[in-house]
Design a protein around this nucleic acid. Structure first.
Lengths: 338, 338
DNA sequence: CTGAAAGCGCTAACAT
DNA sequence: ATGTTAGCGCTTTCAG
């Protein structure tokens, strides 16, 4: 589609319909009502000429692009894929396209991609960070109007934020473990210093301690099966001898499970498991995984809504914390005899 | 980001550097080498003014957009998510962005979204259909230069195509079943009349018959767990009494498995299972699922390559069939005693 | 090899 | 209410 003269322009349509370009423009943007006669002439000119509007020209003329930007760490991760899907749907409903960028978990790219979104004059920017953020990122982000942070915070940025109730999720997990009689719990987090990570841990810890249990081990790493395998080793070798583990992401859980299977460690008989985040078919796993489910679709929708909100009502609520729920399946049982 | 005057323009940079806009433009597009002195002046002007190029203007001026379009049925499906990820990476390497649209499995939207890509003057369009296609779609697609079809064919369109070896995959499954002694095989396909569906079935059938087995049941539906549950019922009620089933997609397999579990049908003891496509953590399922793996990453890369190929070398190879492999896990065993 | 000038297609102040 | 007229920021002939 690279050829220069692509098709008919608005001017051609206007000429064919015997009106001025601005009339056609206004008509098309439904900012106006025309006599039936002229609107028909325009319509037929459009179809006769096979006219298609050029978004680049429109964007250039207006200084914005009817597009919302979405920056995520990794589109192949089921959680982010689901989020992207939700965002796209919500955006579509509002006549906005989505410009997607996955940073491939590279911190360096986060700022670059935000820049790109800015260049593209997106009407709103949804950003999901996957790192403890650099000063540079914070600076870039600081200049972004209609920014919405999803899932993860970036310290020092004041903007709309959509999180799930990480602490509540941690608490649910802790209480659930405690109700089975677990006393020694391990926490496998995402990247250290990330808000979601610390909140989940603190919820878990609070609930545990309120029920006479303890978080005896906590380890942090990136959202990957590789880190999960490492964490599994750490847990199995720990002298603290945990009987339950709460893992902060599905991808990490995959690695954990692989390592447990390889080591002949039975779940839940030997080690109970709860995973935060229920994206992917966890119910079909061996064993079916008990999970904390985030309302991904609602998070995406809310974020789009906030990004596109007309007046940036600073007085209004800026931070939203959506509720999570515990989906009980088969990966938690009473602790083994000690 | 909707404000009008956004930042410095190329003209501002040129003025600050004491050269003409065209010189800056040429310099930035590396179509030229400047004396070190001037190039430095330009560079410092750029950073001083915090100049960022405006892609819309560039696109308008050049008639194309340094962006490849990708249209897929559903971004939340792990297969398509992995494909999108691969495409994005390959595009990035070539300095191209990706404009993504998910049709939400709506046939009606396919043509719309292709149109949108056209408007956006994408430098290449990658299209994955999820339907037996309408005349309208074929017509729209017919006008698209640098079109690449991935995974699924659209009859009557002549363009570059990247498939996997569906027939070979079916054959592998058939042979594998036969090697365990299965005689009666069920096929759960995707949408009927889709090329991938028919090819997988024909490969399966050929291999089965070559080994004294038969495909005793075949059923078709869309790529969803819901259809999988329906198919499971059909299989369980069949008087043909199949002992093995070959299912054409992961999403469908999820539904199948759910229904089998609900009905107390053990896999593989009662029914062996092979799924086409190994996206998602099938190795952690209960039982671990034996699968035909497509080279998703390579497919994405190849498609981008073809879309961006300079000269459309019609004499060259237009259709690529990438090899698949069977990943043996635990969902196939010898058939139960009859 | 560099600069001037004419668009690319559309929008939005101004006029009428 | 419609038309006129400038741009939006960049690319790209075409002169110099």
């Amino acid at each position: 589609m690279a050829q220069k003269k692509y098709g008919a322009s608005l001017n051609d349509v206007a000429a064919a319909a015997g009106v001025s370009p601005s009339t056609v423009s206004r008509y098309l943007n439904s900012a106006i009502k025309l006599p039936a006669a002229t609107s028909e002439r325009i319509d037929s000119a459009i179809s006769a000429l096979r006219y298609v509007p050029n978004p680049a020209a429109r964007s250039l003329g207006r200084g914005r692009s009817d597009t919302v930007g979405l920056v995520i760490p990794d589109i192949a991760n089921p959680f982010f894929a689901a989020l992207a899907s939700a965002v796209e749907q919500a955006a579509e409903e509002r006549g906005q396209g989505v410009l997607l960028s996955a940073t491939s978990n590279s911190a360096a790219r986060e700022a670059d991609y935000v820049d790109r979104m800015l260049r593209n004059r997106v009407s709103g920017l949804l950003f999901v960070s996957g790192h403890h953020n650099s000063r540079e990122l914070a600076h870039t982000l600081g200049t972004v109007p209609s920014l919405v942070l999803i899932d993860e915070d970036v310290p020092g940025i004041e903007c709309a934020k959509v999180f799930c109730d990480n602490e509540g999720g941690g608490r649910m997990a802790g209480e659930y473990f405690a109700s089975f009689g677990h006393k020694r719990i391990a926490f496998v987090g995402g990247p250290e210093r990330l808000r979601s990570t610390t909140e989940r841990l603190s919820g878990l810890r609070d609930a545990a301690e309120a029920h006479g249990a303890r978080v005896v081990l906590s380890t942090f790493g990136n959202y990957s099966p590789t880190f999960g395998r490492l964490a599994a080793e750490e847990i199995l070798q720990s002298s603290e001898d945990p009987t339950a583990v709460f893992v902060s992401s599905g991808e990490i859980a995959f690695g954990l499970l692989e390592a447990f299977q390889a080591a002949g460690v039975a779940v839940p008989e030997r080690l109970s498991l709860i995973v935060f985040d229920d994206a992917g078919p966890l119910h079909l796993f061996n064993p079916p995984l008990t999970a904390i489910r985030q309302p991904i679709r609602e998070m995406g929708r809310k974020a789009v809504e906030l990004a596109l909100a007309e007046s940036k009502e600073s007085p209004g609520q800026l931070e939203f914390k959506l509720p999570v729920e515990l989906i009980a399946r088969g990966s938690v049982s009473v602790p083994r005899e000690t």
